[in-house]
């Protein structure tokens, strides 16, 4: 796609128009431009003149952009959900996703414990065979969910050319929750023999104990998560800011 269309794309995305609307608009404009150029060439214009005339007929880039973004932000049918409700896109949605991932990880842990380790006091013991895979899925969910959700936030922010405020807030929220969420597993045992007798309990909590007893660990964990998720986005922003460095 030629330079004027690339500039128009950047402008529309930065104005908050949803990427799918931008893509469709640009595709139709490109088709229209090809029709106009062909018409001008049929009328006897040279290829260069035909291209200039086609661009002129297509419309001024300002008008083409304004036609999509002129309406007030919250009434425009073309603005993306992230622009209309950033609190939901970068706050509520990632939070719900993370909680869902943790709940699923806890269910996998609890069911795995009941199926593969019915006599064990804790599920955090070495396992063998299929249990490795089963517990592995839960562990992957638990450890990777904040990172994957952070990357998803960064991807959406980059794709829609969003300003840093809301994506940063979302990344910070995910990093803090990811750093403090802890899974606890317990089961009642007999005092004399230590043999488990009661049902197993798996609970998920924001670990206030870790925050008070080992206050140095949780912030570093949060910082590590934040760095890991924010880095690709920061690199992308630098590349966009200094295109010559590409």
């Amino acid at each position: 796609m030629s330079k004027p269309f690339n500039e128009l794309r950047e402008r529309l995305l930065r104005a908050g128009v949803a990427p799918r609307h931008v893509q469709r608009y640009l595709n139709e404009l490109a088709d229209h431009f090809n029709d106009l150029r062909a018409e001008e060439e049929r009328a006897g214009s040279s290829p260069a003149d035909a291209e200039s005339a086609a661009f002129a007929r297509l419309g001024d880039p300002d008008d083409l952009a304004q036609a999509m973004i002129a309406k007030p932000e919250f009434q425009s049918p073309f603005h993306s959900f992230c622009v209309r409700a950033p609190w939901a896109a970068f706050g509520l949605a990632p939070l719900m996703l993370l909680v869902s991932a943790y709940v699923l990880a806890s269910i996998i842990l609890a069911t795995g414990w009941a199926i593969f380790l019915p006599q064990s006091e804790t599920p955090f013991v070495p396992v063998h065979g299929f249990a490795i895979l089963y517990f592995g899925v839960g562990r992957m969910l638990y450890f990777w969910a904040p990172i994957l959700i952070g990357w998803a936030i960064a991807f959406v922010a980059a794709r829609q050319r969003l300003t840093a405020l809301w994506p940063m807030a979302g990344l910070l929220l995910i990093a803090c929750i990811g750093a403090s969420a802890q899974v606890h597993a317990s089961r009642t045992t007999t005092v004399s023999t230590g043999i488990p007798i009661g049902p197993s309990h798996v609970t998920l909590a924001l670990d206030s104990v870790a925050a008070t007893k080992a206050i140095a660990i949780s912030p570093w964990h949060a910082l590590a998560l934040l760095t890991l998720t924010i880095l690709p986005w920061l690199l992308w922003r630098v590349r966009m800011a200094y295109p010559a460095a590409r």
Partner: peptide, 30 residues
């Protein structure tokens, strides 16, 4: 399609009504 619409408007209004041709698409999408 878009190009046809613009050309039809131009022809049928004897070019009295002419707008930047690309701005027809946001109207169509809306």
């Amino acid at each position: 399609y878009g190009y046809e619409i613009v050309q039809s408007i131009r022809t049928r209004t004897d070019s009295v009504i002419a707008v930047g041709e690309g701005v027809v698409y946001p109207v169509l999408h809306a």
